[in-house]
Amino acid sequence: MKKWHISNLYLIFVFLVLYLPIIYLIFYSFNAGDTMDHFSGFSWRHYGTLLSDSRMISIVLNTLIIALLSSLIATIVGTLGALGIYSTKKAAVKNGLLSLNNVLMVSPDVIIGASFLIFFTFLGFSLGFGSVLLSHIAFSIPIVVLMVLPKINELPATMVDAAYDLGATTWQTLTKVILPAITPGIFAGFFMAFTYSLDDFAVTFFVTGNGFSTLSVEIYSRARQGVDLEVNALSTLMFIVSLLLVVGYYLLGRYNQSRRMQRVKAAEAKINQ
């Protein structure tokens, strides 16, 4: 086992392939020149451009506001939904609700985006901040449910009985017994909804209209116009933020997963059951 295997070369190759494009991107963000193919010297120039780009800064703020608001609302609705699913007695109804809950987990983003676009247009709802926020809330709710529900299911049934036995009302039982016990699940759901929102491109792209933009959409439209080292500078900053988030989650022991990874896990669970 301790011997050096040729197979390690293969692993090194895979890791190189995984990380080289990212390192490449970051490397050229320090290029004094304007292209991603010739490094003409070290410079902070593109970071300067990025920080004085008021359009980019307002887009970052928009993205953060959408992420915070949508994850907050999705957490509330999702937690209530999980409590509702938990207290549903009929197995058929419960399974039906869970299946509906998973529809947006398994659907491809283009389908979610296109169907939401039809939906908003059908209602005459104008596209912009509102439609993006509602869409983000919508696709974040199921993950909150999936994070919270197992925590509720883990609660011993006798705990709730004990609360009633000790004279607590339904409301007191909820706020003083159930909610504190499922707080870790609620937080996990919130953080995950937050990262989903930050990461989303396809759904936003469909429902954003003309006036409003988020970071992903902005990166896409700039990338379509070719190389722009301001985007490289932005990716360095986003990489650092992602790294900090991952380390933070890891240290908190709340091992977080991107939206896609969560989908993989859902698929695994389905196949394994």
Binding site: L18, I22, M36, F201, S235, L243
Partner: peptide, 16 residues
């Protein structure tokens, strides 16, 4: 870890 980096940024890297 790379799945945490915005998909568009990774795609953009390949343009270069």
């Amino acid at each position: 870890l790379p799945t945490w980096i915005n998909l568009l940024l990774k795609t953009y890297a390949f343009i270069g």
